[in-house]
Design a protein around this nucleic acid. Sequence first.
DNA 1: AAGCGAACCTGGCTGC
DNA 2: TGCAGCCAGGTTCGCT
Length: 300
Amino acid sequence: MPELPEVETVCRGLDQAMTSRKIISVDQNRPNLRFPFPKNFPGRLAGRKIERVTRRAKYILVELDAGLTLLMHLGMSGRFEILTDDKSHKPGSFHQKIAAGQKGVNGFGKHAHVVFYLDEGTKIVYSDPRRFGFMDLVKTKERDSHPNLKVLGVEPLGNEMNADYIREHFRGKQTSLKAILLNQKIIAGIGNIYACEALFRAGLSPARKAASLALKSTKAKERAENLAIEIRSVLTDAIQAGGSSLRDFANVEGDLGYFQHTFQAYDQEGEACKRPGCYGVIKRIVQNNRSTFFCPSCQK
DNA sequence: AAGCGAACCTGGCTGC
DNA sequence: TGCAGCCAGGTTCGCT
């Protein structure tokens, strides 16, 4: 279930567990996820030292020595678990769950497609039932020209994402606000949940035409300003919630980044609107083949 | 040419 | 209990 805040939390957890460590070996248990793994993937990683783990939109970047970067995406169902010697045999731990009958070919579960073995006994397990994620290797210097990164728009938490940027890039667009927020070429990293939540916070209808925020009126400028503010606030709040609900960014079982959210609109169909003073009911509609949740009373 | 729907894949839930 | 149908948080591709 990874959107930007989850990816950010996973990155922080991986950074903590991996930085300054050495990759001893890598198990790769199938030829592909969404795309084929690069040629000799385990061989090219073995012996590399990890320098840091960062994020671009929903992509995880593991910077290695020798000018190499491991690029990863979690897709819809990708997750990481960190196993260390001291917690790998606690009751309820991953090992215990596996022992209960979910053991796959490599001993880490049916969908554990990649295992990174680090020095000092740490194992990083990547599982991904739907296999929409992927991993690739790229020269660090050429990172930004990777086909998946070069097309991305601005970071939603960066300074470039502001009302002026929104107005400039929404100008003339006949698509809906909901659809344009999901367009990674404009703002990179907003997914279905936080698109709904940002529009709820901004009091803007998901069906409103994107172009309407670029008009000359004071009202249009206000709407763009609000949207920029609320995109930032909803993502920041979610990252904070993730960081504070996870000890060292991982729960006791070593699962990274999957904290409990409370959403105001997303998945709240039929619930009373949570905006103070609003007596609307959250509605679900489908836009561009995706569920949208919003309050028809206060989102205009 | 922008914008939409389909496709990629598995698992979990709902309702008959 | 079984099974069909629907739904899922991402991204790219191809058609109109």
